[in-house]
Design a binder for these strands. Structure first.
Lengths: 238, 238
DNA sequence: GTCGGAATTTGCTCTGGAGCAAACTTCCGC
DNA sequence: GCGGAAGTTTGCTCCAGAGCAAATTCCGAC
């Protein structure tokens, strides 16, 4: 807990953390240094809120490592996952959309490392760093596209297709090759998956069991491996 | 049809068209003049596409009058309405999100008047006109919020609630007071409403019939009047 | 190891709302 | 005024998937 000699290097973050990430990729080392010096770094346990819907958007964040679910809670207390955010993306950028409160809650799905800056710096970043705005809006555009897709899925597809597609998206974003297939590399329960696809954990469980019998997936507690992605793609299209 | 003396004023658009609209509201008359001179004005019939999903985003648009539905078409040919856009808003602003193609199709729901500019001017507008970017991102933020709400609705609510909420949103955006209630001031069919709420026209029809018997709404062909908004609000919450 | 809680599986029932079919109504063009 | 097309209503059937209940398995804490 104590750093004998090099105490000052402990909190000092390395520039290489950011250089390859889209919103910062075009910046000079010196600029990144400045940005990092203004940042607060923090580790979150799995399953805790980084920020909450409706609260004033005081900070914006960069997910360095881990995985975050953006969720909304309905009046009746159900959770709906609106979006998944993988490491390397900004989140909580309410300011970019002219909002003063967070429109949703961000919840870690794994242990996560997050940088953050006070929202008042947002405008500075946009003004001073070339490409910063463009790149973040590109990410945003991507998210809007995802949300659109999700609306279409919810509106037209059957549960089986939705779950298949959700799995495919998850392995695309966070798949890790293991023998026998591609594994989702963070713990995910049937219940999580049901919130992602707007169904019940029972139905998800039944589907997975069925697929496992057919050799499409392999699932243990909190862990899912896709063995035959192609077959899932077919299922996903109905 | 012919302008005897003042022919040259015919195609000339009046500055007042834009002065009160958010993205332009902070601009000087001279600037608005320039913007208008670069614009193409066009009238669309009801039910035609202004631009289509996947096509290169060559222009961006301002809906001056009318009403537009932003739709997506599924592989199986069904239409899903993702968003409704009322007069006074920009649309087709793919550029703002770093996209080179339109992410969805925009279809007029009524006869509409639309201004448009070549996409290459987008960056100019953002750079030159103070507040333009901020204001458009605010609109965008609003739309993201709406999409989020829609996802939650689709994921958790029953059809009756969704239809009730859709109606309420429509009268909020485009309601016109008439005796006996508030009327949606553009023609909308049961089928349109079913695409908006991800159900079938049959179910919508049954619901409306039921509500009409209870005195909540009044509906004719392509026309719906809400008589008791409060009761609908209650229905909408389940 | 053993205990307890969390996650998962599975069976059974019940229903919202889709799907299909058919009649009816309204409107528009000739 | 007379078709015919577009929009609407209504009845009936059927099933995907929710809801409930219970058993089982897994895992971490002690």
């Amino acid at each position: 807990m104590n750093e004998p000699a090099s105490r000052k290097t402990l909190p000092r973050l390395d520039e290489s953390l950011l250089t390859h990430l889209p919103p910062f990729s075009r910046l000079e080392k010196r600029q990144i240094r400045t940005i990092l010096d203004q940042a607060t770094s923090r580790r979150y346990d799995s399953g805790v809120a980084i920020f909450e819907e409706g609260h004033p958007a005081e900070r914006f964040y960069m997910l360095l490592d881990g995985y975050v679910r953006v969720i909304r809670i309905t009046p009746t207390g159900e959770q709906v996952t609106a979006l998944h955010i993988p490491a390397g993306q900004l989140l909580g950028i309410a300011r970019a959309l002219g909002r003063v409160t967070y429109p949703a809650t961000a919840m870690t799905a794994t242990e996560s490392i997050v940088l953050s800056w006070p929202t008042r710096l947002w405008d500075t970043f946009v003004a001073e760093y070339d490409g910063f705005a463009t790149e973040t809006y590109k990410t945003l555009g991507h998210r809007v596209g995802e949300m659109n897709t999700r609306i279409v899925e919810l509106a037209t597809q059957q549960v089986e297709q939705r779950v298949a597609n959700a799995l495919l998206r998850l392995i695309n974003q966070t798949g890790r090759k293991v023998e026998g297939g591609i594994e989702i590399d963070f713990p995910i329960t049937r219940h999580d998956l049901s919130e992602l696809t707007a169904t019940t954990l029972h139905t998800v469980s039944r589907l997975l069991s069925g697929w496992e019998k057919r050799g499409l997936v392999l699932s243990k507690r909190k862990r899912i491996t896709v063995c035959d992605p192609h077959a899932l793609v077919l299922l996903g299209q109905g």
